[in-house]
Each structure stands twice: as C-alpha cells, then as structure tokens.
Design a protein around this nucleic acid. Structure first.
Length: 145
DNA sequence: GCCAACGTTGGC
DNA sequence: GCCAACGTTGGC
C-alpha cells in the first residue's frame, strides 16, 4: 500500500496505531481492499514521492472492508456526490502498525535484490496505489526490513 | 518542477 | 463505443 509520507507516513501510523485507509478513488485499488484483503493480512507500507521512495515498514489489515465515509462527506476533499450511501462505491480497510523499517528499502535496492524482478511496484508506469505482493517476494523483503 | 504513463470523462 | 482532452501519479 502506497502513501506519500508528507501526507501519511509509517511514522504517523506508528504513532496512531491504526488508520482507516480512506480516500482511495481508483477502482482496481478499491477492489483489492473490498474483495481481497482480510483481517490479519500483512502489508508492505510504501513511501511514494519520497527521498528515497521505497518500502518503509510492515502493517496489518485490522478490519474487514467497509464503506469509505469520506465519500459521503461534502466537506471532505474525497467527497464523491455520485456514491450512493445505499450502494457505496468506495471502500476501505483499517490498517494497523506492525513494524518500521530500520531504513527505507529503496527502489534501487528492490531492483537490485534477487527474486524481486517481477514485483509489480517495480514495473514502469505502475501508478496503482494498492497492489498484490506474493509470499515469496514478501519473505525476501521481510528479511531486509 | 518536469513529464511519461495512465485512468477517467464526456462529446459525438 | 471511440477517442481527445484532461487530471493524477510518482520517479527523477
């Protein structure tokens, strides 16, 4: 799961303990949260637009998916007037802090680590903010954190 | 700050 | 259903 640290960092998650992953307005990313993520699933927390960009820690899915309340709040920047409360368009999961990396696992490091060649986040033009990681890749990265 | 890559919107 | 225009993402 990606986040710009200037907006919400792994340190912010550590401080707060957990956080509703609201504001996602991309259908593919929503589908991962709504349909695929289950409480207890582990997450790589990625800092985008950062210095350096890379994996900043590990988090865990805390809740089952639920409608994103910010979509119904006209004052919220993520308000979506076409999302019907009776048939919510946008969903979120609550994410819980697990671990902060001793140092960021940078994109450069990821690219140079054997076994991570196929990682989605390393693909050119990949802008998706939530994407799956396979368990083999996860284990390799877990050792680096 | 630049800009390539991509997703979404809306006229037709 | 096509596709140009537009907005956003995110590495650099």
């Amino acid at each position: 799961m990606k986040s710009e640290p200037s907006a919400f960092s792994i340190q912010a998650l550590k401080r707060k303990g957990s956080e509703p992953w609201d504001g996602v307005r991309n259908y593919q990313a929503r589908n991962f949260m709504r349909d695929e993520m289950k409480p207890g699933d582990l997450v790589l927390f990625y800092h985008s637009n950062a210095e350096p960009s890379g994996i900043a820690g590990i988090a865990k899915i805390k809740s089952a998916s639920r409608p994103d309340p910010t979509a119904f709040d006209p004052k919220n920047i993520h308000f979506d007037p076409s999302s019907d409360p009776n048939n919510p368009r946008w969903w979120l999961v609550d994410v819980e802090f697990v671990k902060e990396a001793k140092q960021i696992i940078s994109l450069d490091t990821l690219r140079n680590t054997k076994g991570l060649e196929e990682m989605l986040v390393l693909r050119k033009g990949q802008r998706l903010s939530i994407m799956p990681v396979n368990s083999r890749e996860f284990k390799i990265i877990e050792k680096l954190i």
